[in-house]
Write a protein that binds this DNA or RNA. Structure first.
Lengths: 212, 212
DNA sequence: GCAAGATTCTGCATACCGTGCAAAAAAGCG
DNA sequence: CGCTTTTTTGCACGGTATGCAGAATCTTGC
C-alpha cells in the first residue's frame, strides 16, 4: 500500500541490496540446514560479504532471517493515531493491523514458507514473540492516547490491544496453515467474530461491562 | 496451593538446592549489574559451583534468571482437562490460569522485583514471551480437545486461549505495577470484564456471533 | 563401615557469537 | 585526479555453549 522508493542514491541502493542479500542467504540456509547448523560465516559467504559486515546489518541471526521492519512500531502507532478519532478503537486497531500484515502477505509463497520456518525453529519463534511484544507496547500507548485514559489506571488499552493483536496473529497463522488459499481479510473477520461471539455471554455472568 | 515435597532422597534435595542457588545468584547479579554485564562464571562462582555445572541446570542465562517450571505447559493442560466438561471454556481457562499465576505471586515482594527486572531487560522479555507462546500452544490443543473442535478447522480454540492468556498477562502486569497492592483476583476479574464489555458491541456490527 | 555401581561435578578442548578498533576499500564531490 | 565521507574488512578479545573423560559424591547391599 505504501512506497518502497525514497531518496535512492547509489549508496542507498547498494546498501539495500546487501541487506537483502544477507537476509536471503540467512533465510535459505536456515531453511535448508536448520537454525543452529547455520553459521554467520556461511550466511556472509553466501551473501558475498565478510563475516564482520553481517553485524552492521543485523544484530543477530534471528533478525537476519526475519528481517523485521525496524520502524514498524512507529508506523503502526502513527497509522493508528491518524484514524478518525471517533472510530471504535478495536475497529481502528483491526484496520491498521490488517492493512499492515496484509502487505507482508502479497508474496504468498514466501510468506507461507516464512511462517513454516518460524514455526519449526524455536529461536525464531522467540525472537518473533519478543518483537510482537514490543509492538503491542507501542500500540497500548497509542490507544491510551486515543482514549484519553491513563494507562496506569485502566486495563482497557492493554486488553484491547492484546485482543486485537491476538486475533490478527491467529488469523495470520491460520492463513499460512491453509497455504494462503483463503483471503486474509476473511480470516481476520472470522477471528474477530469468534472473539466477540465467545466473550459476549460473559458480560452477563460478570455483572455488566466496564464501559463509560 | 500444591506441595513442593515429593520423593526427596539426599541427592534430590541437593540438586534442588543447587538449582535454587544458581537461580538466586543469577537473579541477584542480573538485578545489580544488568543482564549482559553478568557472566555465567560470576553466577556460578556466587552459587558455589563450576561454570560447567551451570549448563547442566539451565540452558541459558535467561532461563536461570526466570527459572520457569519446565512442566508448566503440561500441568496447565492437565488442569484444564480435569475441569468439569460442561464449564464455559473461557471460565475454565480463567480459573486454571488464575490459580497458577496466583501461586507464583504469594511472595509478593519477590514477584514484583521479578516483573520489574523482566521489564527492563529485553533478553528476559524475549525469553518470557517465547515461553508464553509455548504455553499458549499447549493450551490451544487442550481447549480444542475439550470443545471437540478440530484446531485445523476452527479459529475458536486459538482465539479463546489468546484472549484468556492475554487478559491474565495484563492483570499480572498491572498487579506488579501497583506493587501487589490490589489483590490479583480482582485484577483478573477486571481484565475479563473489560474484554467482554469492549468486544460486545462488535457482535452487532459484525453480523452475529460465531457460536455453536 | 565398606566395596560396587550409579550419578553428578569439574576441567579441558573446541566452535561459534558479538563487539571495539583501526586500516583498507569504495563512493561522492569539486 | 585529489580530498572527504562512508562502508567494508581483518584482527583481537571475551563470552556463550557443548562434548568428553576423569574425579568426586551419593546409593545400595552386604
Amino acid at each position: 500500500m505504501s512506497a518502497t522508493t525514497e531518496a535512492t542514491s547509489h549508496r542507498e541502493r547498494k546498501k539495500r541490496a546487501t541487506r537483502q542479500a544477507i537476509h536471503e542467504a540467512a533465510f535459505e540456509l536456515v531453511d535448508q540446514l536448520g537454525f543452529s547448523a547455520t553459521t554467520i560465516e556461511a550466511i556472509s559467504d553466501r551473501a558475498g560479504v565478510a563475516s564482520r559486515t553481517f553485524w552492521s546489518y543485523y544484530p543477530s541471526k534471528e533478525y537476519a532471517v526475519l528481517d523485521r521492519d525496524p520502524f514498524l512500531a512507529e508506523r503502526l502507532r502513527d497509522a493508528l493515531l491518524t484514524r478518525p478519532a471517533d472510530e471504535d478503537p478495536v475497529q481502528a486497531l483491526r484496520a491498521v493491523l490488517e492493512g499492515y500484515v496484509g502487505d507482508r502477505l502479497v508474496d504468498s509463497h514466501k510468506a507461507v514458507r516464512r511462517q513454516a520456518l518460524v514455526r519449526r525453529e524455536p529461536h525464531l519463534m522467540a525472537a518473533l514473540a519478543a518483537s510482537f511484544d514490543e509492538l503491542e507496547r507501542a500500540l497500548v500507548s497509542a490507544v491510551a492516547e486515543r482514549l484519553g485514559t491513563d494507562p496506569a489506571t485502566s486495563l482497557r488499552p492493554s486488553v484491547l490491544v492484546m485482543a486485537a493483536c491476538g486475533a490478527c496473529r491467529v488469523a495470520q497463522q491460520k492463513w499460512a496453515d491453509e497455504q494462503g488459499r483463503r483471503p486474509f481479510h476473511g480470516l481476520v473477520e472470522e477471528a474477530f467474530r469468534e472473539l466477540a461471539g465467545e466473550l459476549t455471554p460473559m458480560a452477563a455472568l460478570s455483572g455488566g461491562a466496564g464501559r463509560r
